[in-house]
Design a protein around this nucleic acid. Structure first.
Lengths: 201, 201
DNA sequence: GAATGCTGTTACCGTTAAGTAACCCCTTTT
DNA sequence: AAAAGGGGTTACTTAACGGTAACAGCATTC
């Protein structure tokens, strides 16, 4: 009728739900689980809190759904990239490239996964750990060193995964305009040849 | 010998302060910054909240002091270990060994540093980053690959630091009874020779 | 043996945020 | 045109927690 400076675009449920997931991913990635309030998310989505609660029964459930989605995506991406390779050297190269490409294209997803307060929460941690464990297992099986037990391979695999994560975090943090593909290549090279360098390429 | 972390009686200020720092480290390491309340810390120390506030002006200040102490300790430990080595191969070995020994002997300190919600907070993150950057710089200078820019060395250094962190976190998480010295040796070996491996020992 | 000065406690305030009840309004159906 | 139903809002409850004022015992000092 009169004033109404508010343009409350009404959306069908399914569409609103998807929008909320997208906004929540962004806000959680930006502020972390604790520091992002349900009200923040609702406001950024242009609605109010109860709308959020019509689609998600709790803050934890919303966060859990995001974590699950991201974990599945990332795991699939890496697994497929590695599976498409021919030989261990190429597996390493393609795996690293796929990881950095993922981080580059899904920064919020990556920040959600590794930026924050999940280590403290068993439920959240499990979701992340499962993905990490899968990738670490993949890597562990690529280590061409004889006489390692499977738990030793797993431990070293986690080391390599940590290496990728550490480099990714540093890359995002330093706002480097370095090409992710280049970084992936150099890191894969380092992982394959070691600090010692040398070069039977 | 007395257990300085669990005394219920009246203590002189300096002693109480030290006790509170010890308890706070344990509680923060266990529950993280957000999920640990000042009341929790006070109760675990056998006193009440205002006593805590007689020694620390705020929760942030308390946490900051702990982070600073831990960062200094860790940085010194690694720097000295590396400085005592003779040649790059031994630097890697001694650096890794020192890191894992530190994690083993100061689990709470390590958890405080890498377990939690510091990435989100600029002040906390800076304290951790400084230590990480120093170590990453040390490592970066050990990479025997020609033609790398200093920022590239830094990036790869962060990768190696991430590798150590990732392996440490996995080691603590999996409650492995593996000897930290052995793990350090294997990881240093992996870092030095790369995934390509060649010869176990 | 009163005064002084710590160490410590009880009881409170203010804020922030999760979650909910009750209601509104617009569109579609009959 | 009246009913029905779903999308949305206002306003509230509850609970946790950081931080503080005021006060209480117990030494030591004078």
């Amino acid at each position: 009728m009169e004033d109404s400076t508010r343009v409350a675009t009404r959306l069908p449920a399914a569409r609103r739900r998807r929008q909320l997931l997208g906004v929540a991913l962004r806000v959680f990635a930006d502020r972390g689980f604790h520091d992002a309030s349900m009200n923040d998310i609702a406001v950024e989505a242009g609605v109010t809190k109860p709308v959020l609660y019509q689609h998600f029964t709790s803050k934890r459930e919303l966060f859990t759904e995001l974590l699950t989605d991201v974990g599945r995506d990332l795991q699939d991406t890496i697994t497929k990239a590695v599976a498409s390779a021919d030989g261990p050297r190429e597996m390493v190269q393609k795996g690293f490239a796929a990881y950095f490409a993922y981080v580059d294209r899904h920064r919020d997803a990556f920040k959600l996964f590794y930026g924050g307060s999940l280590a403290r929460d068993d439920e959240f941690a499990d979701l992340v750990n499962q993905t990490e464990r899968t990738i670490a297992g993949l890597v562990g099986s690529m280590i061409e060193i004889e006489g390692l037990s499977s738990s030793q391979r797993q431990a070293l695999g986690h080391g390599i995964v940590g290496m990728i994560e550490g480099a990714s975090i540093h890359w995002l943090k330093s706002n480097s305009d370095a090409d992710p593909a280049t970084l992936a290549h150099q890191l894969a090279d380092l992982a394959w040849r070691g600090l010692r360098g040398v070069t039977p390429d």
